[in-house]
């Protein structure tokens, strides 16, 4: 399969200095990339750059096999949303917006697609509940359903399992794997390194610049991987909140 997008020497600068420095890699359609690294290592910034929200100071993100309107994005939650009057259906439906151009109203197809994602993420019973009254995990699932509504090509996830209990988290990983097997390309930022490495096929380890990029197997054997995964990486058991089969 062809290259879906490429980061070409991407650097992003904030007031205090580089948040992302000279990062290059290519992702092919069908890849499942996990971005790992410490707090403040530039993961969110890189993801935002890929999503087109942050303009790189140097280099560029080349969207070759995917259009901007075909990207689904799950942000790290902002406090503003937490008390917004909207129900789950309204939130999920808004994911279809990028697709229907100038059309002022949602079509039946949009609604069907929203319902499908709602069922997939098991939030049917809270479909008309108010978003602000949901638990953090339920909100997260609503936002994921919205992101899935927006794309069947490229999904960008910023810590999708933060705030989810281990059971729901592993359910989420299962759903993502299933979607990935059907051809959806996934880029996921995660602190749950164990699961990330377990489910993804590629790993990008950030430390402002690129510390490692490559296949999951190579990562486990690499210095960077060993350090982050701890001594356990050498053996069978990986750290993290989820149980592995």
């Amino acid at each position: 399969m062809g290259v879906l997008f490429a980061c070409e020497s991407v650097s992003v600068k904030y007031d205090m200095g580089f948040a992302v420095e000279n990062v290059s890699f290519e992702l092919e359609a069908g890849d499942y990339l996990c971005i790992v690294g410490e707090n403040g290592s530039g993961k969110t910034t890189l993801l935002k750059t890929i999503a087109g929200l942050v303009r790189p100071a140097a280099g560029k993100v080349d969207l070759r096999g995917v259009k901007q309107s075909e990207i689904g994005y799950l942000p790290q939650q902002t406090p503003l949303q937490k008390d917004f009057p909207a129900n789950v259906m309204e939130v999920v439906l808004s994911g279809r917006l990028g697709r229907n151009g100038w059309l002022p109203f949602y079509t039946k197809r949009d609604k069907d697609s929203a319902n499908e994602e709602i069922v997939r993420l098991n939030i049917g019973d809270i479909k008309f509940a108010s978003y602000r009254s949901l638990s953090g995990g339920q909100q997260q699932r609503a936002l994921l359903a919205r992101a899935l509504c927006a794309t069947d090509k490229l999904l960008l996830l910023d810590e999708p399992t933060s705030g989810l209990d281990p059971l729901i988290a592993s359910e989420l990983y299962r759903i993502l794997r299933e979607l990935n097997e059907r051809g959806l390309t996934i880029v996921m930022v995660s602190h749950d390194v164990g699961s990330a490495v377990h489910y993804g096929n590629k790993v990008l380890h950030m430390q402002t610049s690129k510390l490692f990029f490559g296949s999951q197997n190579d990562y486990v054997a690499s210095d960077a991987g060993r350090r982050l995964l701890g001594g356990a990486a050498a053996g069978r058991r990986l750290p993290g909140g989820t149980a592995y089969v």
Partner: peptide, 12 residues
Amino acid sequence: TFDENFAKAAGT
């Protein structure tokens, strides 16, 4: 209004 970043990422 709900989420400017998401809308922008989706091409709005």
